[in-house]
Design a protein around this nucleic acid. Structure first.
Length: 421
RNA sequence: GUGACUGUAGCUCAAUUGGUUAGAGCACCGGACUGUGGCUCCGGGGGUUGCGGGUUCAAUUCCCGUCAGUCACCCCA
């Protein structure tokens, strides 16, 4: 193999670039239709922007280095700290709720594997300044709308929803202490990825009785709001959380995306900063990693920027989504060609071909012609290969022929203000 | 960082048990069809067999190392 890109980095040849552009265009289009506005920040940030939130062990997964001024800096591994800083800096001046989105290229120093590279593009959509669960529902509906416009259905993609406060309240009723709950969250987070007996052992190791362990396992199975209410509703905290979730699902129904969503307490979202409703989008067959994930992080802005504002957001990467769309045959396979190919019969007509091409171009069309005089047949061959739907042929007598390269139909046209009529 | 598997043209793959100058299809470039494309035919460019070392008369083939890829673990902000 010739020397290629660095491990985990991608060369975007025109075909790959077209696919990336296809995804990013839909991201931006949907975000704007939901009245989010785009922002961006620096691709390089001070290292401590990330270590403050996640501790020093995160440095092993960052592209960090010391710059020529002696500053410890890092390529951004995620957008949320930058977002939080920017919002916090102007918190008082921003109209609430803040509805912003961004499409940063993010970097992490990790061994690459399926669905994970060292670089990717990620749509970030965030709302700041709204505590109502309608905001949570609005956010999820953006994510669902994106996969919908890309051709996926509720049979292809499922939104799995949980609520960290609910889970904590449920664990509290089972007698799980605050100190134990962190470990329990960790076990629940990976309960799908390891044998059930291992999960049981780990829960027991946290000092939980066998009966409690089994009830926790039960919570990670199929659950419903009604079922939880019947079993745990006597607890006031649980009941309040269930009420909130009920209103949340009502909002999803009103937004027309309720059928995509299901309650699933296995969704924990790492051990990060989430405080309330969290969600992930998965392909329904479970062949791929999560397409997208997010949730409410009401305390993060205070801890990072000193501004006490509720917030929520999600991130959606281009790698897994692209893999899924290609797998389902939903990624446009052909590169867009020029609108017209201007062909000429005699070498001396090249200048005329240039004039015609330029007139069409100035009117907005994409136009190519043979830079080197070639036989007419070869030019038409090139026109087909380039993917042009139509060829404009300059005949020796000066007339223009517009030829469809699909059907072969021809008609005589003339150029009028950059248009062929 | 750990482990398993895999590395031959741009892509998909060949190459008797280790044996001459590593082949084919697709793609690309050129030519023929005498100048309106898609088909067909002919020709051409393109490989230090990932890289380095070892064994051997001889290595794409066997061994070691290294790099890269794939998958899993770790981690997933």
């Amino acid at each position: 193999m010739a020397k290629g890109a660095l491990p985990g980095f991608r060369d975007f040849y025109p075909q790959e670039f077209a696919e990336r552009d296809y995804l990013l265009k839909h991201w931006r289009d949907v975000a704007r239709r939901f009245a989010f506005v785009e922002y961006d920040g620096p691709p390089l940030e001070p290292l401590d922007l990330y270590t403050k939130k996640s501790g020093d062990e995160i440095v092993g997964q960052l592209y960090n280095f010391t710059d020529k001024g002696g500053r410890e800096i890092s390529l951004r591994p995620e957008m949320t700290p930058t977002f939080a800083r920017m919002v916090a800096a102007r918190a008082n001046a921003l109209r609430k709720p803040v509805r912003w989105f961004s499409v940063p290229q993010l970097f992490r120093y990790e061994r690459q594997q399926k669905g994970r590279l060292r670089e990717h593009f990620q749509l970030n959509v965030d709302i700041v300044g709204e505590v109502d669960v309608a905001a949570d529902a609005e956010l999820l509906s953006v994510a669902i709308e994106i996969v919908r416009v890309l051709g996926l259905t509720q049979n292809d993609v499922r939104a799995r929803i949980s609520d960290r406060r609910l889970l904590r309240a449920l664990l509290a009723t089972l007698g799980v202490s605050e100190e134990q709950s962190g470990g329990v969250f960790a076990v629940i987070d990976k309960i799908e990825r390891q044998p059930l007996d291992i999960s049981r052992e780990k829960l027991s190791a946290l000092g939980l009785a066998d009966g409690v362990v089994e009830r926790i396992i039960g919570l990670t199975g199929r659950v419903s709001l009604d079922g939880l209410r019947a079993e745990y509703g006597a607890d006031a905290a649980v009941n309040e959380c269930l009420g909130e979730l009920g209103r949340y699902f009502d909002c999803l129904d009103a937004l027309g995306v309720g059928a995509w969503a299901e309650l699933d307490l296995k969704i924990v979202r790492g051990l990060a900063y989430y405080t309330g409703i969290v969600f992930e989008l998965f392909d329904a067959h479970g062949e791929f990693r999560a397409i997208c994930g997010g949730g409410r992080y009401d305390t993060l802005l205070k801890s990072l920027g000193g501004v006490d504002l509720p917030a929520l957001g999600f991130g959606m990467g281009d790698v897994v989504l692209g893999e899924l769309l290609r797998h389902r045959g939903l990624m446009p396979a052909t590169l867009a060609g020029p609108d017209y190919w201007v062909a000429y019969s005699e070498p001396a007509q090249r200048a005329e071909a240039m004039r015609v091409s330029q007139a069409l171009r100035r009117a907005g069309a994409s136009v190519e012609y043979a830079l080197r005089p070639q036989q007419l047949g070869r030019q038409l061959k090139a026109a087909s290969a380039a993917g042009a739907p139509e060829a404009v042929i300059l005949r020796e007598d000066g007339t223009l022929i517009l030829k469809s390269l699909a059907s072969g139909e021809e008609r005589t046209v003339r150029l009028s203000e950059g248009r062929l009529v």
